[in-house]
Amino acid sequence: MHIVTFTALADFPALLDAHLRAFPENKNTFEDPMAGCDAAAGDIFVRDILTFETHVFHANLRAMLENDDPTLNMTPEVELEAGETADATEDVVPSFEAARKRTLSILADLTDDQWARRATTDGTRITVIGLVHLLSAHDWTQLADLQRRLAACSAP
């Protein structure tokens, strides 16, 4: 795998945490809690990222490693309900960090043959390396979304 992609995956939890800390406290100018500027909106956002990591990426990676030529599902089968908030006793950022560490651990142990395993997603053939690139692209898309939300939250 490309070291730049592995590094990007490893660095993402810290970048995510820094972006979440940039939001002003108790400022919610949106009616949609997923687009809000408060801590609950941040928790929901991280829960969505955690869901993608565990229910999409891990499931698809497992399918690629255990099956020949599977068709991947890039949509989580578990979705948050609109307005759902994180359990007050659960800090979702550490949960995501733990899931990402698990991802990196799995990837670090793959053999060359496993990296080359193939699957199909949305009509496109990819390898395990390609799936990892898609995870990294998902991370960067999420950071871009946070930047847009920060822009909207900056208005009085």
Rank of each mutant, 00 (worst) to 15 (best):
E77H: 13
D38I: 07
T7K: 14
K101C: 00
L16Y: 13
F96A: 06
F12N: 05
A86F: 00
E79F: 06
R149Y: 13
V4K: 04
K27Y: 07
T51C: 08
K27R: 11
L134V: 09
S154A: 13
P33F: 08
T124E: 13
A108P: 02
M64R: 04
A10D: 09
L61V: 02
F6A: 06
H55F: 13
G83I: 14
T7R: 11
R117G: 14
I126G: 03
R21D: 02
E81P: 12
R47S: 01
P70F: 02
A137F: 15
L107G: 01
P13K: 06
I44V: 02
A35N: 07
I49V: 13
T5D: 07
D69R: 11
L16F: 14
T111F: 06
D68M: 03
I44Q: 08
T71F: 02
S136W: 08
I106W: 10
A14M: 08
L146T: 10
H58N: 10
E90S: 01
D17M: 12
T124K: 10
S105V: 03
F45K: 01
D87I: 00
R125N: 06
D69S: 10
P76Q: 06
V4A: 10
T5Y: 09
D11V: 01
D112I: 08
L50K: 06
L50W: 15
D122A: 15
A119C: 00
A59V: 15
D87A: 08
D38E: 09
A86N: 03
R117Y: 14
L80H: 06
I129Q: 13
I126F: 02
F45C: 00
E84I: 03
A86E: 02
A152Q: 10
M64Y: 05
T141R: 09
T141Y: 11
S95E: 05
